[in-house]
């Protein structure tokens, strides 16, 4: 048997993070699949001018930027969830300890 490379506290925010992670993943996968399908089904669409660039460049840069934005959003939500949900756990533990001391 082997254990993890380092120890950590119990994380109450896991379920929430998994749900958000799944939805963000599905959202990005749809946008990425759309890029592939447009390339295959309607490649001329990718040559349409959009300002000084074209759809291919905008969509390509967009996919990169969208990944970065989703990553920051996911981290923001996850960090907030960890601080709130794990704080509740710490508060409960403190209360239990206090009750025990008083008893």
């Amino acid at each position: 048997m082997h254990g993890p490379s380092s120890e950590w506290k119990k994380d109450n925010a896991i379920s929430l993070k998994v749900i958000i992670g799944k939805w963000f993943f599905i959202l990005y996968a749809i946008v990425y699949a759309g890029f592939i399908l447009i390339n295959v089904a309607s490649p001329k669409f990718m040559s349409i001018d959009i300002g000084s660039l074209n759809m291919a460049i905008i969509y390509g840069f967009g996919l990169i930027l969208f990944a970065i934005l989703l990553a920051f959003a996911y981290n923001h939500i996850s960090t907030h969830a960890e601080s709130v949900m794990n704080q509740e756990q710490e508060d409960d533990m403190k209360t239990e300890r206090k009750d025990g001391d008083e008893a």
């Binding site: 992670g21 799944k22 963000f24 993943f25 990005y28 996968a29 990425y32 890029f35 390509g60 996919l63 990169i64 990944a67 989703l70 990553a71 996911y74």
Partner: peptide, 18 residues
Amino acid sequence: GFLYSIGYLAGWIVALFV
């Protein structure tokens, strides 16, 4: 060639969220 850049970066979404 830029398609590789797009695909390589997109793969990190799987790494992060899953």
